[in-house]
């Protein structure tokens, strides 16, 4: 009888499906086995207990007047980090413009994918590596930081710019051309009003990311708050580290809030 045939919830896999499944499962098992085997999980913890360290990080600096001066000094350095992010962000926005026009399908034409490949390649490189390159090229300092930010941010800004160029509504442009406007007029009245708010919003969004990124850049000597952060951390001067952590978090939260407000108004 037909009914006697055993029914499974899943259809019978073909040999090819079985082979693929076994291949995937084995490679995942091997990958994790290798990872866990090769990874050194030892910890060199300091003598003090985590609670003591947390106390030194976040309580001592706030209640001890000695460290209050340090808040002011580090805020100044944090401002330098923000300046690096801002200068780098503006430069990146300018550099990204021609690349975005080239990479967008409706303006770049058949070669637009080349622009996309370039932008993708830039995005796949961590900001820290750009930091390494530029510190090597121009020496430590905030100039190297600006260079790293301005090149690294091109990838993302260019991609998002290109996307907003691709989403331009062609109808107003046609209308302007139909009433006898020339190309420059079509751009000024038909395209610019559509893309300018979006471009500003993209650049602001990237600026938020760049503030975080330029905090990291200090670790390779590219200026800003990262430099004292890594120095104090090496000396296990936890109170000083705590001051810097608090300053960074405060600045980041305030900048995110402000920038978010402005972006909400733009779009």
């Amino acid at each position: 009888m037909n009914n006697q045939k055993k029914i499974s919830l899943r259809s019978q896999r073909s040999t090819k499906q079985k082979a693929t499944l076994i291949l995937i499962v084995t490679s995942l098992v091997l990958l994790y086995a290798f990872s866990l085997w090769s990874q050194d999980f030892s910890i060199a913890s300091s003598q003090s207990s985590p609670l003591t360290i947390l106390y030194r990080l976040f309580v001592v600096p706030i209640v001890t007047p000695v460290y209050w001066r340090s808040f002011a000094e580090n805020s100044w350095l944090m401002l330098e980090t923000v300046a690096i992010a801002y200068a780098g962000g503006v430069a990146a926005s300018l550099f990204a413009l021609p690349l975005a026009v080239f990479a967008a399908k409706n303006s770049g034409g058949k070669l637009s994918y080349i622009g996309k490949v370039i932008l993708n390649a830039i995005r796949s490189i961590p900001e820290l590596l750009f930091g390494v390159f530029f510190v090597a090229a121009v020496g430590p300092g905030s100039f190297a930081g600006v260079l790293a930010i301005s090149i690294n941010s091109i990838g993302m800004i260019g991609k998002l710019y290109a996307e907003s160029i691709e989403s331009i509504d062609p109808a107003p442009v046609e209308a302007i051309k139909a009433t006898g406007g020339n190309r420059i007029q079509a751009f000024w009245y038909g395209i610019l009003p559509q893309i300018l708010p979006q471009f500003l919003s993209v650049s602001l969004f990237r600026f938020e990311i760049d503030v975080r990124a330029s905090t990291i850049l200090g670790l390779v000597g590219a200026g800003g708050i990262g430099v004292p952060l890594i120095l104090s951390q090496q000396q296990r001067h936890w109170e000083e580290v705590g001051v810097i952590l608090i300053v960074v978090i405060l600045f980041v939260v305030i900048i995110d809030k402000l920038s978010g407000k402005i972006r909400a108004k733009l779009v």
């Binding site: 990874q39 050194d40 999980f41 030892s42 910890i43 060199a44 913890s45 300091s46 985590p50 360290i53 947390l54 990080l57 503030v211 975080r212 905090t215 990291i216 670790l219 990262g226 952060l229 951390q233 936890w238 580290v241 952590l245 960074v248 978090i249 980041v252 939260v253 995110d256």
Partner: peptide
């Protein structure tokens, strides 16, 4: 919203040096 590096520094301080 906390930058990555802050979290890492915090962990190194509290847990100790090492990949963990």
């Amino acid at each position: 919203s906390i930058p990555n590096i802050i979290m890492v520094v915090l962990m190194v301080a509290v847990v100790g040096l090492g990949s963990v």
